[in-house]
Simulated scan of single mutants.
Amino acid sequence: MSDPRPDDTAMQAYLGRLRRLTTHVAVDEASEQADAIVAAGASLSALEEVSVDALTRWVRARPADVPALGLTVGLSQEKLKNLLRVAFGTSSWVKAVGDDARGVVVWLDEELGLLAALEAQRHRTYTFGDVLAARGTSRQVANRAGVAGKLIEDAVEQIVRDLGLPYEMRGRFVGRNGDTGPADLAVPGFEDALIAVACKGFDSTGSKLTAAVTEVMDMAGVSFAHQYVLAVVDGIGWLSRQGDFRRMHALLEQHRIDGLYALADLDAFRADLHAAAVRHGLLEGHLPDAGPVDVPGEALVARPEEFEAQLRLDL
């Protein structure tokens, strides 16, 4: 078997640094599989005790009903798949339970408080108001994709402000032949952009990730050679859209964009942004000393290695 290509190795290392951007919400979410969820709920209500041993026996007997445990702690099936992929190397709860049923239960409890949530919820009497509140909260959960993207924007904007750079948020920067490309942040502004930054964060998956890749490709397609294009991209949704992510990562390998950073790489992003700004005369001197950049989101695995800046400019 041949060794992986260097770009594959780099891409997989990047995917290993992705963070969960949105928190779980303990709500009873609606589902198309209503009958199965109702049956699973009835079975959980009938358990004599709520314990790791009891739930391990339950998931072994009903592996297809693991999403009901996810719903207990506010996870949609999509988010459950993504988190299982990180924790167990598979997005299939049936396979995860087949390989390590007790491990799945312990993970749900330690990470999301399954036992306490199930004990508190399974015998509660729900009013019509509770039903309406659950539906309303589900809509809020669906809107969290925007929250994830804003979290990355806020982190990037804080770095730009700390460096003292002029900037504008959310617009289209002017590139070659007067064509424009989308950017979440432009330095010093969109009309005279020297540095354009994309901020893309998703914990869920879907066509919006493809659209995000298209935006970054559009940025690369219209930018002048002197314009730096940087992208800060994170969120566990990319684990289920690796084909899309590969297209974006290829832009970095082909030197069509100048930097691609997970949130764990914000220190490198700060260094590269400063270097680009110095090259354009927007800043002077060496990168000022500062404490570690505050990294939002939740790390899912230990990452002891440090990542170097990508631009490698000689200043």
Rank of each mutant, 00 (worst) to 15 (best):
Q254R: 01
T125L: 15
V73A: 11
L282P: 09
R135P: 00
A211Q: 15
P296M: 13
S138H: 06
A30T: 03
Q310H: 01
S223D: 05
V105H: 04
P67V: 05
D65A: 15
Q77L: 15
V97Q: 01
E215D: 10
S43Y: 07
V27M: 13
S207H: 13
D244L: 03
G175K: 01
R246A: 04
L71N: 05
R176Q: 15
G113K: 01
V174M: 06
V160L: 10
D65C: 13
G103K: 02
V278L: 11
L194G: 10
F128L: 01
A262S: 09
R20V: 00
T23S: 15
E215I: 03
E32Q: 09
R172S: 09
A68T: 04
V232W: 05
V97Y: 08
S76D: 14
L83E: 01
E119N: 13
G113H: 03
E298V: 07
A87G: 04
L251V: 05
M11N: 02
F190M: 11
Q254P: 04
P6L: 04
T180K: 10
V104M: 12
L194E: 12
E168Y: 13
T127M: 11
P182I: 06
P6V: 03
V73I: 11
H249A: 09
A134V: 06
G175Q: 03
A183P: 12
R270G: 07
D162K: 12
H123I: 06
H274L: 10
G237N: 03
Q77M: 14
T23M: 12
Q227G: 10
P67E: 06
V160N: 03
K150S: 02
G113Q: 01
L266W: 00
A13I: 08
I37R: 14
P63K: 01
V52Q: 01
L108Q: 04
F224P: 08
S92R: 09
D154E: 12
D28H: 15
S51W: 10
R144D: 10
V73M: 12
Q33N: 11
S45G: 12
A101Y: 04
V174Y: 07
D28Y: 07
R270M: 11
G149L: 08
R5N: 03
Y167T: 14
K79N: 12
W58N: 03
M248C: 06
R62S: 05
D109E: 09
E298W: 06
A276V: 06
L115S: 10
G206P: 04
A275T: 04
A250Q: 05
G297V: 02
S45N: 13
R122M: 12
R303T: 05
L283K: 11
A268Q: 07
R17S: 00
L163P: 01
A193H: 02
L282C: 12
D3L: 15
L273S: 04
A271G: 00
G281F: 07
E157R: 08
D218N: 06
S204I: 03
G136Y: 11
E48K: 14
G149M: 11
A183G: 13
D99V: 08
A34L: 15
G297Q: 02
